[in-house]
Design a protein around this nucleic acid. Sequence first.
DNA 1: CAGGTTTAGCTATGAGTATTAGCTTATTCT
DNA 2: AGAATAAGCTAATACTCATAGCTAAACCTG
Lengths: 233, 233
Amino acid sequence: MARDAASSTIPAPASTEVPRPSDRRARRRQETIEEILDIAEEVMAEEGVNGLSLAEVARRLGVQPPSIYKYFDSLMAIFDALFLRGQVEHLAVMREAMASAEPGLGALTAGLEASGRWALGHRALAQLMFWRPVPSFEPTPEAFAVSAEMVALERAALADAVAAGELGPEADSDEAVYLLSTLIIGVLSQAMANEPDVDWGQGRFTPLFPKLMDLFARAYPLNSPGSKRRTLT
Amino acid sequence: MARDAASSTIPAPASTEVPRPSDRRARRRQETIEEILDIAEEVMAEEGVNGLSLAEVARRLGVQPPSIYKYFDSLMAIFDALFLRGQVEHLAVMREAMASAEPGLGALTAGLEASGRWALGHRALAQLMFWRPVPSFEPTPEAFAVSAEMVALERAALADAVAAGELGPEADSDEAVYLLSTLIIGVLSQAMANEPDVDWGQGRFTPLFPKLMDLFARAYPLNSPGSKRRTLT
DNA sequence: CAGGTTTAGCTATGAGTATTAGCTTATTCT
DNA sequence: AGAATAAGCTAATACTCATAGCTAAACCTG
């Protein structure tokens, strides 16, 4: 239909209309890719991580299943793209929350709470990212870089907290980051497994978060009197 | 093969050998059921929770796929049975570890460490039990009862710890149980997602466990001086 | 021990999945 | 305008879970 519209409405003569020639094509392609990912995320949200089916995505996109392969090599490639997209989005949310809070412990708390809120709001995606439901796929090096950046963010906030005198010097360590992420992941695991329908701040587990932050702070006290109470450096 | 062994080796005359007549049939059936579950667990351990395939189980059992349906209504029923079996086994392991330790905090620590060890040794099963990879299956009421018993175990140990003066009185609460399980689940989540091949005690996360128990204890201090430092009752 | 019932296996079939191959048609470049 | 590319399609393969219906063995009962 309207197959000769291009030659009539778009005056081909010179390069006066659009800068790059094949730009449109690439843009539409990218749009389709994003649309596929949107649908995939939607399907995963409804049916769970494993409920993601290439056929269902094709159905909702209004296309035959093999057509998807023009955009993704396999179902796994879609998982991969979702993984990366989720990580980028999660990082942005976290970064923003940390930026609009007091540097140090405040930023840390705000960032982790935002992280938790985001995870509960994107459960399937979070599950894909933070647990490993399918052992057959390893995160791309690219995805790994994003993850490293998140660690760096937390590490910086910890350094701020130490500098501000909110935490003892040993809090500026990898161990502290692991401890921190372990705490938040614990809350999220419990919430997602046992209370699939409650939001952040509700239920039995997410309200424990402030207490956990309190415990974390107590793990790295300012004054180590006699420095006898080590923290398993 | 050996199809008439029964009539020749087992003297039928009176009810002298085996009480119930059809007992053998039921026993063999039960044996097959257990064998199927063993194989299923094995497959899940190799291929991940979602790698469990009815066809593969049948293949390893040396039988055609439809024959499995004589023993289980569906693949989900197998998941259900594995879930229950895992919970029972896990509970037993935990109970035993707690029994052979000092009552109170010692038992609690021993029980949780045993729990973590078991989970890392039965990763796929643990994932099925403690996370919820498939949203379509709800734990049976029966399974829920086992879970409740585990909570009761921890609750009792907490009460012991309070009685022994190891923890403040507020540790004898549901909240404390939630806190405790959140801590251990956090460690396990991190270990399973990020270090799929390391055992308990190795890697970046499980060594945090003692510190976490320490933090937990500090959350319920004995002397609440002025009782001002509440613990979010 | 003979006859009927239950059980455990089978084959055949249907609907669903991911994926590949190869064709057609529309779009875009030269 | 004609060549090249991209995006869709249909057809086919090889899996998956699941159901239906059959056969034969095991078992129970009169």
